[in-house]
Simulated scan of single mutants.
Amino acid sequence: MTARPDDPAPNPHATEAQVQAALTDNKLAQVLYHDWEAETYDDKWSISYDERCIEYARGRFDAVVPDAPLPYERALELGCGTGFFLLNLMQGGVAKSGSVTDLSPGMVKVATRNGKNLGLDVDGRVADAETIPYDDDTFDLVVGHAVLHHIPDVELALKECLRVLKPGGRFVFAGEPTTIGNIYARRLGQATWKVTTEITKLPFLKDWRRPQEELDESSRAAALEAVVDLHTFDPTDLEAIASRVGAVEVRAKTEEFAAALWGWPVRTFEAAVPDSKLTMRYRLAQYKAWLGLSKLDEKVLRHVVPRQFFYNVMITGVKPGAAAK
């Protein structure tokens, strides 16, 4: 249930000098940024390990693998973050046991702690997705959420996924930004941050302003974010990469158009104001709005809007061999 004792320790407070060094060292940037985010990441993104997020994680899985005979025996998560995707998939009956890996020691620490608190059969390792530290044919399932766009060599990482999968094993990656979706999401987020941080300078809105040191630290993290987000994907191109490394039964699906246009300003606003202002009633209202817009995307807009305009892309493929799940 714990990370390996020989893994490096987290570094949650990067200095300005370290940030500057990371601007020319991508993997250092990945570690610093995600170590900085680890302890607050679940709150920032409203991540939980209850029915709401179990349903979300299982929904992403079922969207690209609607007929898998479950559960898988052993699963691996790459770029696990706080464990959101695999831990909720395990709670949703997708896998019996799991291993969480991330380049960030801070994220592995939080993910394994979350797994322990949930009573799940999970171990963790600090690991590079381009050189996965497990033997060939080890796992039945490899998953990841919002991780491929952080990996310098996506094709190499997918080759590694096939290597550690058993014949017939499957990989499922979700939450990856499309090229077009990333453009409007970033612009909406930047505009929302600027407006919110400027307006809350007004005296009568001072209670809505985070302390300046927190805003400054967020700005430093944002500078690293521009470095760690390496890729965006066209769904067809991502399918081609997965096929090129030898996967079969490859397919991509996109989601979130109206939901992304709404969600990015909301998430950015929430990051710019004190948590105390975000009541449970407010959070529930935003969640219901996102659900409604997601249904609009799925029921209506996906039939009229080209798939590359949606914000998120999911990809799955199978290692050739025995009958795939």
Rank of each mutant, 00 (worst) to 15 (best):
E55Y: 08
R74H: 14
G81V: 14
Y49P: 12
F61L: 07
A57I: 04
W45Q: 05
R58V: 07
L76C: 01
A57H: 00
C53N: 14
G81M: 12
V65K: 12
E77Q: 07
S48H: 12
F84I: 10
G79P: 13
S48F: 13
L76T: 05
S48I: 08
A75M: 01
F85K: 05
D50S: 06
R58T: 11
F84T: 15
F85C: 10
F61C: 02
D67A: 14
V65T: 14
W45L: 13
L86N: 03
D62S: 11
E77H: 05
Y56A: 02
G81A: 13
V64N: 01
D67Y: 10
D67G: 09
G83I: 06
F61I: 09
E73L: 12
G79M: 09
V64Y: 00
R74F: 08
A57S: 13
E55I: 04
E51I: 06
G59R: 05
G81C: 13
E51K: 11
G59M: 10
A57T: 05
G83F: 02
I54S: 00
G81Y: 13
G59Y: 10
E51V: 05
D50L: 11
Y56I: 04
Y49S: 09
C80Y: 00
L78I: 15
V65A: 09
A75T: 00
T82M: 08
R52T: 14
E55W: 03
G83V: 00
C53H: 05
F84E: 15
G83K: 04
R52P: 01
D50W: 12
V65Y: 06
R52I: 14
T82R: 03
L86M: 02
A75D: 03
L78T: 07
D50K: 09
Y49C: 00
A63N: 11
E73P: 01
Y72N: 03
A75P: 01
G59E: 00
C80T: 14
Y72G: 02
R60C: 09
L86Y: 00
A57L: 03
G79R: 11
D50F: 11
A63W: 06
F61A: 02
R60S: 10
R74C: 12
P66I: 08
A63I: 05
E51G: 04
F84K: 15
E77K: 08
D67E: 12
A68L: 07
L86E: 01
L78M: 12
G83H: 03
P69N: 08
I47R: 04
Y56L: 07
T82E: 00
G79E: 03
V65I: 13
P66F: 15
Y72S: 09
G83Y: 00
Y56D: 03
S46D: 14
I54M: 11
E73M: 10
T82D: 03
A68N: 02
W45G: 04
D62E: 09
E55F: 09
A68Y: 14
E73W: 11
T82V: 11
S46V: 15
C80H: 09
G83M: 07
S46T: 15
